[in-house]
Computed example of a mutant assay.
Amino acid sequence: MTTLEVLAFDADDTLWQNERFFRLTETAFADLLSDYADPAHLTERLLETERRNLARYGFGIKGFTLSMIETALEITEGKAPASVIQTILDKGHEMLEHPVELLPHVAETIQSLKGDFRLMVITKGDLFDQERKIALSGLADHFDGIEIVSDKNPETYRNVFSRHGVTAENAMMVGNSLKSDVLPVLDLGGWGVHVPHSQTWVFEHADPPQSHPRFREIDHLGGLQGVLKSLG
């Protein structure tokens, strides 16, 4: 068997809570504009705007906030009160300042793996926000490399692994997104471990490759040690 050298982890909704705050803000946004449209319709319109803006703003809270403002202006035909725009901005600021909440079993699992493998974080999103969360997580010192990227695809992973002197065949990526964390690394010949999160963003959904020999799924990060032991 190929020697496993690197364990790479996604950050948002793998190491700490993230999507939950987006959904809470989305609910507040729908309530804010309830006089103009049905909440379900607002959610659909916001999702359409986010999809359209990914190429402009990328992933993260700032793009989400701009998409909320754009949706509010569209729904109200440009008549959204300044107070509504201000409230949306305030919600975005709250998200950017929210404390980091580690998910269960994360701290002890990362600590237990240090020294046995080279540990990395490979995450996408806004640079400043991701740097803030990594710093506040208390985990930064356990990682040998931290990569914040604009998107996750096979080429992204190939370049990241190459910069760190490892091939995908010797790496394992662990994350909550099948689309971004697991499938691209499997395509390169690496290992992919899916850790489902109850609120994974709809854009990150994909079918699990159950028959792939290097695919694994665990209920929480505490199950990773069992996966590693099973590989011999």
Rank of each mutant, 00 (worst) to 15 (best):
F117E: 00
S162A: 15
L46P: 07
R158D: 11
Y36M: 00
G222H: 11
W16P: 08
L54K: 13
R56Y: 01
M68N: 07
N18T: 12
D141E: 15
F59T: 08
I88F: 05
E155P: 01
N159Q: 14
F215Q: 05
L178W: 05
R56M: 00
G190P: 10
T109A: 06
Y36P: 02
H98V: 13
G63H: 09
G190F: 08
V121G: 04
A72W: 10
L7C: 02
Q86H: 15
P99D: 06
E147R: 15
R52E: 09
V174R: 12
E70P: 06
E70H: 08
R214D: 04
R158M: 05
F117L: 00
E217S: 15
G192A: 06
V193A: 01
V174Q: 07
P208D: 04
S150G: 07
S198C: 00
E204M: 03
A40E: 11
D187T: 15
R163Q: 12
D31I: 00
H205K: 14
A28Y: 01
Y57S: 01
R20S: 10
L127N: 03
K62P: 03
P184M: 04
Y36E: 04
K79A: 04
F215W: 13
M95R: 12
L15G: 09
W191Q: 04
G232H: 15
E169H: 14
Q210L: 14
N159A: 09
F203V: 02
Y57R: 03
S230D: 12
K152R: 09
K91S: 07
F29N: 06
F215V: 09
R51C: 00
F22L: 01
F29W: 07
F203A: 06
D187H: 15
R214M: 03
D126F: 02
P209W: 05
Q86N: 13
F9Y: 11
G232Y: 12
Q111H: 15
V121T: 06
A37C: 01
F9G: 13
E155F: 06
H164E: 12
L89I: 10
K62R: 15
I134C: 02
I134M: 06
H194K: 03
T167S: 15
A28C: 01
I148H: 10
A107G: 11
T43S: 13
F22G: 04
D35L: 03
W201F: 09
R118Q: 11
A37D: 06
A8W: 07
K79D: 00
E147F: 15
M172W: 08
E204Q: 12
P81C: 02
R214S: 11
M95A: 03
D129E: 14
Q111W: 11
E131W: 08
L127A: 00
N53M: 04
I61D: 00
Q199L: 07
D151F: 02
H205G: 00
W201H: 14
E108M: 06
G190H: 11
T200Y: 00
L103V: 04
H220I: 00
E77R: 14
T123M: 03
